[in-house]
Measured scan of single mutants.
Amino acid sequence: KKRTSIEVSVKGVLETHFLKCPKPAAQEISSLADSLQLEKEVVRVWFCNRRQKEKR
């Protein structure tokens, strides 16, 4: 599977969401993915990776 490069503008939206809610529910991930025209899996993994980054 190819890596998905995420646009800077999209990263901004994801970051804003992350600050409000670092662990979104599946439904939130779905609606976020739809509005950003990304796959749900890509958004889910982004949040996973972002949470791990917080720990470091």
Score class of each variant (00 low, 15 high):
residue 1 K to M: 12
residue 2 K to D: 08
residue 2 K to E: 05
residue 2 K to R: 09
residue 3 R to Y: 13
residue 3 R to Q: 08
residue 4 T to P: 10
residue 4 T to H: 00
residue 5 S to D: 15
residue 5 S to F: 10
residue 5 S to E: 15
residue 5 S to T: 14
residue 6 I to S: 10
residue 6 I to G: 10
residue 6 I to H: 11
residue 6 I to N: 09
residue 8 V to D: 12
residue 8 V to C: 08
residue 8 V to S: 15
residue 8 V to H: 13
residue 8 V to K: 15
residue 9 S to H: 15
residue 9 S to K: 14
residue 10 V to I: 13
residue 10 V to P: 13
residue 11 K to V: 11
residue 12 G to C: 11
residue 12 G to N: 10
residue 14 L to T: 05
residue 14 L to H: 00
residue 15 E to L: 04
residue 15 E to H: 01
residue 15 E to P: 04
residue 15 E to C: 00
residue 16 T to R: 13
residue 17 H to R: 01
residue 18 F to S: 03
residue 18 F to P: 00
residue 18 F to C: 03
residue 19 L to E: 07
residue 19 L to F: 00
residue 19 L to P: 02
residue 19 L to G: 06
residue 21 C to Y: 01
residue 21 C to D: 13
residue 21 C to W: 01
residue 22 P to F: 03
residue 22 P to A: 08
residue 23 K to I: 07
residue 24 P to C: 00
residue 24 P to Y: 00
residue 25 A to T: 15
residue 25 A to C: 14
residue 26 A to L: 11
residue 26 A to T: 12
residue 26 A to I: 10
residue 27 Q to G: 10
residue 27 Q to F: 06
residue 27 Q to L: 08
residue 28 E to D: 08
residue 28 E to L: 08
residue 28 E to M: 08
residue 29 I to T: 07
residue 29 I to R: 03
residue 29 I to L: 07
residue 31 S to I: 12
residue 32 L to S: 03
residue 32 L to C: 04
residue 32 L to F: 01
residue 32 L to P: 10
residue 33 A to N: 00
residue 33 A to T: 03
residue 34 D to M: 06
residue 34 D to R: 12
residue 34 D to K: 13
residue 35 S to R: 14
residue 35 S to Q: 14
residue 35 S to I: 07
residue 36 L to W: 02
residue 37 Q to F: 04
residue 37 Q to N: 13
residue 38 L to S: 02
residue 38 L to V: 09
residue 39 E to F: 03
residue 39 E to G: 04
residue 39 E to L: 06
residue 39 E to Y: 05
residue 40 K to R: 11
residue 40 K to G: 06
residue 40 K to T: 14
residue 40 K to W: 05
residue 41 E to P: 02
residue 41 E to V: 02
residue 42 V to T: 14
residue 43 V to A: 03
residue 44 R to I: 00
residue 45 V to L: 13
residue 46 W to Y: 03
residue 47 F to A: 04
residue 48 C to W: 11
residue 48 C to N: 11
residue 49 N to E: 13
residue 49 N to R: 09
residue 50 R to Q: 01
residue 50 R to W: 00
residue 52 Q to P: 03
residue 53 K to R: 10
residue 53 K to T: 07
residue 53 K to D: 09
residue 55 K to V: 11
residue 55 K to E: 09
residue 55 K to L: 13
residue 56 R to S: 12
residue 56 R to P: 00
residue 56 R to I: 12
